[in-house]
Amino acid sequence: METPLRKPMKHLVAIFACVILAAAAGAALVRGARPGPAPPLAAPETPVNGVLYARHFTLAQPYPHTWRAERPLVSSGYLVVLDIEREYLVPRQGLEPVLILGEQTVERINNGDGSGHLVAIVPDAHLLRDADRVEQRDLAERRSFFATPALPEEVDGAWIAAQVERAASLAPLGASAREALAAGTSPVQLEDRVALEHLAAELIMRYAPDESEQAAGMLVPLLR
């Protein structure tokens, strides 16, 4: 059994992460406000400027994708970092525009409103191919956009398909996605979602260091 973190240690992790990753974060270190006034709604439009990081993963133990009504089991997908206009990422309690990438709802891991960098999980949509006739595409060919505000847990394949159709005129992610995939991160095989979350936490520290407290909270000792 690992030893749980004490309060001073919790802070040390956060401070350590900030110091180590500050340089890498560069200009992204601008700490924006935490939850603030509601962002402008947009549906469909794409304040997604590009892909900073992308890595395909597979899991030995799938988990349910809770960001859509069907709760498909996720055994593969992309762990990505998206560059998005910050005001679109301010979290709020009411309905938020649902972020879609390709034909799939995106699971947001961090807020990203301070850095403009959103760490996210994009389950492979082919998991639903039989049910929804969704065609899998390369990451670069997919579009990413904010759809109509909704609770993601209540949207289903038909809703997503309608939103994707409305976004057909948007440009796909294109070069930035290809560059991100070519940047040296090979597909990774992981045991389970916990391992995936640990990878995501490391990305938060690197790309959104203002949210290192959240990352630290994802890396606390596991008691099993």
Binding site: R193, G217, V220
Partner: peptide, 15 residues
């Protein structure tokens, strides 16, 4: 007061 941080797994982080 003692504060402790740990996780029981995915979505089981507890303070």
């Amino acid at each position: 007061v003692i504060e402790t941080l740990y996780s029981g797994g995915s979505w089981l982080g507890q303070n």
